Computed example of a mutant assay.
Amino acid sequence: MNKIPLIKPYIDFKDVATDFETIFDSGWFTKGNFIANFREKISEYTSAKYCFATTSATTALYACLKLLKIGVGDEVIVSDFSFPATANVVEEVGATTIFADVSLETFNMLPSELENKITSKTKAVIFVDAFGNLSGLDAIKKICKKSNLPLIEDAACAIGSSINGVKSGNISDLTCFSFHPRKLLTCGEGGAITTNNPDYAEKLEILLNHGATVQDGKFDFVEAGYNFRMTELQAAMGISQLKKLDQIVEERNEAKKEFDRQLLPLGFIPQEKTYTGIHNIQSLVYRVPENYSRDELIKFLREKGVESTIGTYCLSGLTYYSNKYDCICPSAKLLQEELITLPCFDQVESLKVCNLIREFMEE
């Protein structure tokens, strides 16, 4: 059976073979020229002044909270519809997670929710670009600026997305990307932080390198820092894909148009984009029509050789968070129950997938 995966990585060994050989010949696997080049290329692509490569988006988010010295007694407002890492980092620094519900149309944090959740204890906001969609980010940014709150953008899914020509990575105070295997740009694993704030950049340079710096010509450790560094091999992978990232985004938008053409008449509801700009279509997600079981559809498709899965999670409804905070956001909960993620990549067999969905609905 010809199986259809959710995504096919946009990289082949031949893309990096020469670079890998160079790295192996040099014996220099970390903090070398490829990392420096990757950081520079991400900065160029996003137009952000500074970029720092990390081991994941999770460690990137954690480093941002430590940079801001957020800890016990502080509150961080978080989009409630995301992967658990978004809230887990808040818990790990000892702060209190405050969940903000999301729009049923865009799946992103509602500005009204943010305004209602801000207190004297609020020290930062983490906005999640759900599936790479930047809807509502500008409004959230204005609220944060008015309230003098740092805006951390969980852009794990948003590399390549932009608002009015301004790319994710150059919008918020701190932006965190992921280069996980399911992302449009993958380093196997990995992440990055971008910022335009020179003070943040200076501190991140130290924090991400074990707290080390050079003072008066001497190497010293001035912070309790971390080894959150990406490797040279990962950076080489990232550099090779950056060259074709805009093409990848264009191809995924074309694939989505075909799925929309076939699924919208069946009652499937797509994620809305409420801004002028590019949505990279990191994940192709739809709300399944009423009277049909999303979980049964996933099961049916998998039995037919088509990989599919849920959208993502209502964080406040997960066991750890519901036990601790007992405050579940209703829209995020509904989206967790209704959303399905379908395969999306260049030349995906959209007609086959949609015909199987029709078959399921007719049974």
Rank of each mutant, 00 (worst) to 15 (best):
E251A: 12
P330D: 12
C314F: 01
L245P: 05
Y286G: 04
Q282I: 04
L266D: 01
D246P: 05
K243D: 15
V288H: 00
R252C: 05
L263V: 04
E251G: 03
F221V: 15
I298E: 10
C329T: 15
G267Q: 09
V214P: 04
L242D: 11
A332I: 11
K243T: 14
L284C: 07
F345E: 06
P265S: 07
E303K: 06
G311W: 05
G238Y: 07
L266W: 01
I269D: 02
E251T: 12
I298A: 04
V348K: 04
E232K: 02
D220C: 13
L233V: 15
S316M: 09
P265G: 09
S316D: 11
I340L: 07
Y321G: 05
I340K: 00
P265A: 08
Y320K: 12
E296V: 03
Y321E: 05
Q234H: 11
L342F: 06
E258G: 03
E307Y: 02
E250C: 04
L334I: 13
T341Y: 03
Q282T: 07
K333T: 10
D260W: 04
I281L: 03
K324H: 10
G225L: 08
M230A: 14
Y313T: 06
M237E: 02
E250S: 12
P270N: 09
G277W: 03
E223D: 14
E250G: 03
L318I: 10
G311Y: 08
L266N: 01
R294N: 02
T274Q: 08
F221Y: 12
N253Q: 15
L266P: 03
L315I: 14
Q215C: 14
R287D: 13
E307V: 03
K273Q: 10
R302I: 10
E258L: 09
N355K: 13
E349D: 15
E254T: 05
S283H: 08
E223F: 15
E303F: 00
D246A: 13
V306N: 02
L245G: 09
V285M: 08
Q347E: 15
C354Y: 08
S293W: 00
I310M: 08
L351I: 14
L264F: 01
I278V: 15
T276D: 14
V353S: 10
E258Q: 13
G305I: 07
E250I: 06
V306A: 06
R302D: 04
G225I: 09
L242G: 14
A236D: 15
F259W: 04
L263R: 00
F259L: 12
E250L: 13
Q247F: 00
L297F: 07
G217Q: 12
Y313G: 01
S322K: 14
A332V: 11
K243S: 14
K352I: 14
N253F: 06
S350T: 15
K299N: 11
N323I: 05
C354R: 09
E337I: 01
L315V: 09
R287M: 04
F221I: 15
A255F: 10
A236K: 02
R358P: 06
I310P: 01
I278Y: 00
C314N: 08
R229N: 13
H279G: 02
A235H: 09
S350N: 13
C314S: 12
I328K: 02
K273M: 11
G267Y: 01
T274I: 07
